[in-house]
Design a protein around this nucleic acid. Sequence first.
DNA 1: TGTGATGTTGAATG
DNA 2: GCATTCAACATCAC
Length: 261
Amino acid sequence: MPELPEVESFRYRFERDIQHRVIQDVLVLDQKVLRKTPVQHLKNELIGKSFISTFRQGKYFFAELSSKHWLHIHLGMTGEMENFEPHEDAPKFSRIILEFAHGPHMAYVDMRKFGSFFPIPDLDQYISAKSLGPDALTISEAEFLERLSSRKGILKAILLQQSVLAGLGNLYVDEICLQTRIHPASRTEQIPGNKLKALYQVMMEILTASIDRHAEASTYPSSGLWSWREKGYYFKDGRGPVESLTLAGRTTYVVPDQKVY
DNA sequence: TGTGATGTTGAATG
DNA sequence: GCATTCAACATCAC
């Protein structure tokens, strides 16, 4: 479930359900998502502590502990959070379970195990080591334009690079290109300035609208936003047919009226 | 049975 | 250093 709006929804639910509750125990059902972190280290960092704040940059989520240390969670392809009552079985594909003294337990569920869940010593240091770019939801238009025009290459590949701009994934990039009628195979350096501004505007509209929609529900893909991603699809306004290709190693959907710059 | 899937990383190549 | 491509990761649904 993992592009920026989904992670923002995760953050919202994390704060609502988990924050300020003292962690009583941590169960590691699968060490893979710990990425080499020793189980005991995770337990030492979490047990007896509570989360006091959260932070998200792009698809990267962080929760601050009462010790001032941080827990990092990345949802990968299939990560999500599920609460369950202590007397119930843990959800399928649970990898980590946080138990609290009272109330529901939290399961970090991740079918494909591409996600991660581990403590980090320093937030700023971690983000700069990752070369994470500015968050797509809060970046200014000026900075967006500046960062895009300082790169050359296929538009889609650049928008997917988390070091350029943090938060967009395969589906949102296709959606933004569809709505701006810019072909994702365009060379970024060939796109006129007013079209880059349109990209920014549409990106912001889509992200904020998706976050609103996600505020409670958490299914992904959500609410038909992606229903057009199939070969031969026609939109109600006549746009189509949808075609597919591979760009930056990712399956990409376009309609014929998207202009290649 | 084979294929592809919303993400990230690292290697190899130009 | 940059851009590009590809493989790997693990598992399930179609």
